[in-house]
Computed example of a mutant assay.
Amino acid sequence: MEAETITPVKDRSHWPVAKFTSFDESRAYRIRQWQEAGCEARMQGAWELVEEYWVGMKGMHPDELRLQRSVTHIRSRGR
């Protein structure tokens, strides 16, 4: 019997729901919504998009998005 892989579902119940009659109306609503959102909300939304792309499209592990530390120290040359 194979182990079943369960993908966690994001809670999007806090997202507003609206119905529009045209694409332009929808676009204007989204622009207004982002402009009214605070800086923290915009940063959070952008980071969610980055994570979804990194994991979903590239198949990479989300922990690889953290800052990398490849240089341990720098020594200056003596004159």
Rank of each mutant, 00 (worst) to 15 (best):
1 M>V: 09
1 M>E: 10
3 A>Q: 14
3 A>C: 09
3 A>R: 12
4 E>G: 01
4 E>Q: 07
5 T>S: 06
5 T>D: 15
5 T>N: 06
6 I>E: 11
7 T>Q: 14
7 T>K: 08
7 T>D: 05
7 T>M: 08
7 T>E: 15
8 P>S: 02
8 P>Q: 04
10 K>H: 11
11 D>N: 15
11 D>G: 09
12 R>D: 04
12 R>P: 00
12 R>V: 03
12 R>W: 03
13 S>V: 04
15 W>I: 06
15 W>V: 03
16 P>H: 04
16 P>A: 02
17 V>T: 14
18 A>D: 13
18 A>T: 02
18 A>N: 06
18 A>P: 01
19 K>Q: 11
19 K>G: 05
20 F>V: 05
20 F>Y: 15
21 T>Y: 12
21 T>N: 14
22 S>H: 08
22 S>C: 10
22 S>F: 06
23 F>Q: 13
24 D>R: 01
24 D>M: 06
25 E>A: 15
25 E>L: 07
26 S>H: 08
26 S>T: 04
27 R>A: 14
28 A>C: 05
30 R>L: 10
30 R>Y: 14
31 I>S: 09
31 I>Q: 12
31 I>Y: 13
32 R>C: 06
32 R>P: 00
34 W>A: 13
34 W>Q: 13
35 Q>M: 08
36 E>R: 05
36 E>C: 04
36 E>T: 03
38 G>I: 01
38 G>N: 07
38 G>Q: 01
38 G>C: 11
39 C>G: 08
40 E>I: 04
41 A>Y: 02
42 R>E: 05
42 R>Q: 10
42 R>A: 04
43 M>H: 12
43 M>C: 11
43 M>V: 10
43 M>N: 04
43 M>W: 11
43 M>D: 13
44 Q>Y: 05
44 Q>G: 08
45 G>A: 12
45 G>K: 02
46 A>H: 15
46 A>D: 08
46 A>Q: 12
47 W>F: 15
48 E>G: 10
48 E>S: 10
48 E>I: 07
48 E>Y: 06
49 L>R: 04
49 L>S: 11
50 V>F: 11
50 V>E: 15
50 V>L: 15
51 E>C: 07
52 E>Q: 14
52 E>G: 07
53 Y>N: 03
53 Y>H: 14
53 Y>C: 01
54 W>V: 02
54 W>I: 03
55 V>P: 01
55 V>R: 01
56 G>N: 13
56 G>M: 03
56 G>Y: 04
57 M>C: 12
57 M>N: 11
57 M>P: 02
58 K>W: 14
58 K>R: 14
58 K>S: 12
59 G>C: 05
59 G>N: 13
59 G>R: 03
60 M>P: 00
61 H>F: 07
61 H>S: 10
61 H>I: 00
61 H>Q: 09
62 P>S: 05
63 D>K: 00
63 D>W: 06
63 D>E: 13
64 E>D: 14
65 L>C: 08
66 R>P: 01
66 R>V: 05
66 R>H: 09
66 R>A: 10
67 L>S: 03
67 L>I: 07
67 L>F: 09
67 L>M: 15
68 Q>D: 12
68 Q>W: 01
68 Q>G: 00
69 R>V: 05
70 S>Y: 11
70 S>F: 07
70 S>K: 05
70 S>L: 07
71 V>R: 01
71 V>C: 12
72 T>K: 07
73 H>Y: 11
75 R>M: 02
75 R>I: 00
76 S>C: 06
76 S>L: 09
79 R>N: 07
